[in-house]
Design a protein around this nucleic acid. Structure first.
Length: 521
RNA sequence: GCGUCCGUAGCUCAGUCGGUAGAGCAGCAGACUUUUAAUCUGUGGGUCCUGGGUUCGAUUCCCAGCGGGCGCACCA
């Protein structure tokens, strides 16, 4: 179809293909090759002279930059202004005052203006005439300021690095960030292209992961990888995904946790291990849950859950310091202070403190459940009802970092119990901003007790018809324990929720590049 | 899985008490040599999510399906 007559959904592609052809006809490749920028756009901006030179064309340092056209403005037939963006827009975004971040002026300042003069560019003007929003180009020129004071590159050479055949959803600097949630998640590249905030979230995520790795490595931990496909899914209570190995004629389960394999490694003598990887749970999707999610789990021989508490506090402070450069997290209305020692409170004590209820007082628990609208018959045992009441009563108070300790044993089959009270475990869950972000045990290393717990769990799972496989006893793991698991502490930390806390994202889908979705229509 | 709201141009959205639709931005053509979401003139662009039903006529009303948001349940 001819570019001037094309209409309908293909008009954009047709017009841009025609421009690509026009470039080829002039001997210019519209899908460029290797290019070597000398400066990021942030660096080029920093080189711009502070003062506007009155009545003279500014002549600053020579730079070569590459990026994407976010805005095009022709001022006459022989002069074009464009705004070029590269990945440093995320860095500039992070440095901007949150109060002004969303303004059009702030958005513009994350790129750099290009001054494209026909008289200067000569043959290169063919490229300028064919430019469209979203094209990738490289430019060479001198930095300076225009008469209006805008930092600019006075371009002498233009190279096309990647012609875009489809238009971006928006012009940069206009209507930023109003893409529908569906487009932002399904076509994440458009979200990243469009939104500096989104780009910043995923860069932050990467830096958090990187700092986590160096933290554990420096503490003498070894990074390992254990099976994602397991014959018996263990280490957590959740429904697994099932998959099929054809050659083995075997159903395998995508792991719900790496725990049982990591502890096998301690049996082998690795002593300190961590794994940062995906888990899969066949459960519902919510603003805090994605079917596949990333978790770091670590185990340390001779330690216990109290050692893990200290390590957690150190870890959070270090991540905040290295990644955010401060010791607080901002999440909605809340400012979470990581400098203060994290609060530590027992599971049953918390219920007393925040609800004024004793967990053993059956009548009081039932009364509270009724008051909160929790259906009594949905919870088979008194303990389960207590837990439902606990979540409703206590969790709203868990905004500042809090270790909840001494969970009841029935909740926690892989954990060692208190020496003086077998109904409570040596465990903690770490909460911040009402989210559970961490979970740690003093691990159970007595194979006899472990076998009993598995058996009890199997009975309970059989009773609850919706539990598919969590009742299977992992005898192979018990054999590993028979060979001797050193006393140890272990902890898991959800990476996605960690990123939420560090970026202020209120839904997990904003911190996962490609969250689980049904195939589009 | 249940409830609820939504699906109209490339994007964000109006609208049609049932008579096949509009805006802004983007696009195309033209004017303009310091613009700032440039401006000005002209102009093209739609399976109104899909499939049934009711109707003379459905984008609109009804039913089902598909996709998304939010809440609940399950879970972390």
């Amino acid at each position: 179809m001819d570019a001037t007559t094309a209409s309908g959904p293909d008009q954009y592609r047709a017009a841009r293909l025609a421009k690509a052809d026009k470039l080829r006809a002039a001997g210019i490749e519209p899908f460029g090759n290797r290019f070597a920028p000398t400066h990021s756009i942030a660096a080029a901006r920093a080189l711009c002279p502070a003062q506007v030179v009155e009545g003279d064309q500014p002549k600053g340092d020579r730079v070569i930059c590459a990026g994407r056209i976010g805005n095009l403005r022709a001022s006459g037939a022989k002069l074009v202004f464009a705004t070029l963006f590269d990945r440093s827009r995320a860095e500039i975004f992070a440095q901007q005052d949150p109060a002004v971040r969303d303004g059009a002026d702030a958005k513009k300042a994350r790129g750099i203006q290009l001054y494209l003069d026909k008289a200067v560019l000569g043959d290169g003007w063919t490229v300028v005439e064919s430019l469209d929003l979203a094209d990738w180009i490289g430019v060479e020129g001198r930095v300076g300021r225009t008469r209006r004071g805008e930092p600019s590159i006075f371009v002498e050479r233009v190279t096309v690095l990647g012609k875009a055949l489809l238009p971006p959803p928006h012009q940069a600097g206009a209507d930023d960030g109003v893409l529908s949630p569906e487009i932002r998640q399904r076509q994440r590249y458009l979200d990243l292209m469009q939104s500096d905030a989104a780009l910043h979230v995923f860069i932050t995520r990467s830096r958090l992961v990187s700092e986590l790795r160096s933290f554990f490595t420096e503490h003498g931990y070894l990074e390992v990888e254990t099976p994602m496909m397991q014959p018996i899914p263990g280490g957590a209570s959740a429904r697994p995904f099932v998959t099929r190995h054809n050659a083995l004629g075997l159903d395998l389960y995508l792991r719900i946790a790496p725990e049982l394999y990591l502890k096998r490694l301690l049996v082998g003598g690795l002593e300190r291990v961590f794994e940062l990887n995906r888990n899969f749970r066949n459960e519902g999707i919510s603003p805090r849950h994605n079917p596949e999610f990333t978790m770091v789990e670590w185990y340390e021989a001779y330690a216990d859950h109290r050692v893990m508490m200290d390590l957690s506090e150190q870890l959070f402070r270090r991540l905040a310091d290295r990644v955010l450069g401060r010791s607080t997290l901002t999440f909605g209305e809340w400012t979470i202070d990581l400098d203060q020692p994290f609060r530590r409170i027992g599971y049953h004590d918390a219920l007393r403190q925040f609800g004024g209820i004793d967990h053993a007082d059956v009548a009081a628990i039932k009364a509270k459940a009724r008051e909160l609208g929790i259906p009594l018959d949905a919870h088979a045992t008194h303990e389960r009802l207590v837990n439902a009441v606990w979540e409703a009563v206590v969790e709203p108070h868990l905004i500042q970092p809090t270790f909840i300790t001494d969970q009841p044993t029935w909740l926690t089959p892989l954990c060692r119990t208190h020496p003086d009270d077998p109904s409570r475990t040596l465990r903690f869950e770490l909460f911040m901003a009402r989210m559970e972000v961490g979970n740690a045990y003093t691990e159970l290393n007595d194979p006899t007790i472990q076998r009993q717990r598995f058996a009890e769990q199997a009975v309970e799972a059989a009773a609850a018809s919706d539990q598919e496989v969590s009742g299977i006893i992992d005898e192979d793991y018990c054999t590993a324990l028979d060979h001797g698991l050193p006393s140890c502490g272990g902890q898991g930390l959800g990476i996605d929720r960690l990123v939420m806390l560090f970026t202020g994202a209120t839904t997990i889908r904003d911190v996962i590049l490609f969250p689980t979705m049904k195939p589009g229509a």
